[in-house]
């Protein structure tokens, strides 16, 4: 269930919109109906996927700015916008109150974090070794630790590190006892609530603190640190929980969309109906509208899925 979506928002789209714009737009659609011309004639606000395509006659209220160079090359469009959407931290810093961080493209809200105990249950279910450690990000994705064998999740465990297919990385992040994650994969690992080891540069890039959200180690030590972490449920649970909260606070695309909708005046501030209140309560528990639990709640209350979602 979402707030009313009566407002039409017009889109000015260039030939190659930013890859992270798509999930952002999907989240924004909770509060409005995004349209391009000619269906956007009644738009209450306009969003441009780049300052280069911002039509000055319509003065877009929100503009995606990819870099400071992008900004400096298109100053009139950028400086007249109320909201500057970005995934560049330099742009965010310069934008001040107008900036909205759209994150690292991680679907945080659509990912249920898994505690070390639940991970151990999934490994038992799939026949994976109890101390499975996976490495994601540069250097190449690989797995290690545990005894030999291949679980039905398709992730191979071996003493020697071996590459795993990219499509199995989310599964690996969900079931591993500990993860070594570097570069842009770190936020995804934290979204899964994985007990994670990383390097100093990767941690700094997303604001993760050693001992609070992740463990920071040198490349030579990462695997050993992760193996020890894999066997410490209390510490792994604490890091996984706090790491998840970090990406919820800084990388959630729904939060970015909600903030944008609020600044563009798209959110209806009317008093919520009783079912809206229940929806808010579910959202507080990070339940998405399409989660299976929503259907179960509807069944418990004698409501159809459509009433709730």
């Amino acid at each position: 269930m979402t707030e009313p979506r009566n407002h039409v928002v017009g889109l000015m789209v260039d030939s190659a919109p930013p890859t992270r714009f798509s999930p952002f737009l999907g989240a924004l659609a909770r509060w409005c109906r995004p349209r391009v011309l000619p269906d956007a004639r009644d738009a209450v606000a306009w969003i441009a996927t780049s300052p280069r395509v911002a039509d000055p006659r319509r003065r877009p209220a929100a503009v995606w700015v990819s870099s400071l160079h992008d900004w400096d090359a298109n100053k009139p469009a950028v400086e007249s916008a109320h909201v500057l959407l970005t995934d560049d931290r330099e742009v965010l810093a310069r934008a001040g109150d107008r900036g909205v961080w759209v994150g690292d493209g991680v679907d945080v809200r659509g990912t249920v974090p898994l505690t070390p105990f639940v991970r151990s249950r999934w490994r038992a279910r799939t026949g994976l070794p109890g101390d499975l450690v996976i490495h994601v990000g540069p250097p190449p994705t690989r797995v290690g630790g545990g005894g030999a064998g291949t679980g039905d999740a398709g992730i191979q465990s071996a003493e020697a590190h071996e590459a795993i297919a990219d499509e199995l990385v989310p599964t690996g992040l969900a079931v591993a006892a500990a993860v070594v994650a570097t570069g842009p994969t770190l936020a995804a690992a934290l979204a899964w609530g994985a007990p994670t080891v990383t390097d100093a540069a990767s941690a700094a890039a997303i604001g993760a603190i050693d001992g609070e959200h992740v463990l920071v180690a040198s490349p030579d030590e990462m695997h050993d640190v992760a193996t020890r972490l894999a066997n410490d449920h209390a510490r792994g649970g604490m890091l996984g929980r706090q790491g998840r909260r970090l990406v919820e606070q800084t990388h959630d695309v729904v939060d970015a969309a909600a903030l944008t909708a609020q600044r563009l005046g798209l959110r209806d501030e009317a008093a919520p109906a009783p079912l809206d209140v229940l929806s808010v309560r579910l959202a507080e528990l990070w339940v998405t509208d399409d989660a299976a639990i929503v259907e179960r709640v509807g069944a418990s209350l004698g409501l159809s899925h459509g009433d709730l979602a």
């Binding site: 249920v112 898994l114 105990f117 639940v118 249950r121 279910r125 609530g193 507080e284 528990l285 990070w286």
Partner: peptide
């Protein structure tokens, strides 16, 4: 069962 366990763990932690 495992999905329920994951959901319950997450909700418990948040609450």
């Amino acid at each position: 069962s495992l999905a329920d366990q994951a959901r319950l763990s997450d909700w418990d932690t948040r609450a």
